[in-house]
Amino acid sequence: MSSIRTSSADILYGLVIAAVAMAFFVHTFSDQYEFNPLIESVSTVLFPRIILGGIFVCALGLIVKGYRNKSEDSRLQAVNYPKVVLVLVAAAATAAGLWFIGYFYVMPIGVFATGWALGYPNKLILAATAISATIIVWAALGYFAAVTFPTEFRLG
């Protein structure tokens, strides 16, 4: 598992947040937000500009803080990034499958795949849990509570 220094993380996060905030800030000067005093008494982008400006300034502060703390050795929590990506892919595939294939086919596979990706050792119990949870949740919520479930097949 790898971890990066907190100071480096602060600089990186600060740069990304500042860049995104600046991009949105520049966007507020585009034609679609042209101020029309006949329709509005206060510009619709005044408040967003204040907020985005605040985010930008604070992000710069985060970068400065990162540089000032460069000598410190504190680190972020160690994370197994490949495992995170694996679980994310399983979750995303389950979500996509939910929409295109339907709840009953995809959810048992998705729950099983996520549990397997997380490292649950007993595949038989995992499979049984996946199937029974799919049925129980549908029965309790879809049938009795009338919650909308994605059950249609949308591929092709």
Binding site: A91, T94, A95, L98, Y103, M107, G110, V111, F112, T114, G115, L118, Y120, L126, T129, A130, A133, T134, V137, L141, V147, F149
Partner: peptide, 11 residues
């Protein structure tokens, strides 16, 4: 537990 949380979250 976490896969069940995923199930509930997506539903």
């Amino acid at each position: 537990l976490m896969p069940l949380v995923l199930l509930m979250s997506l539903v």
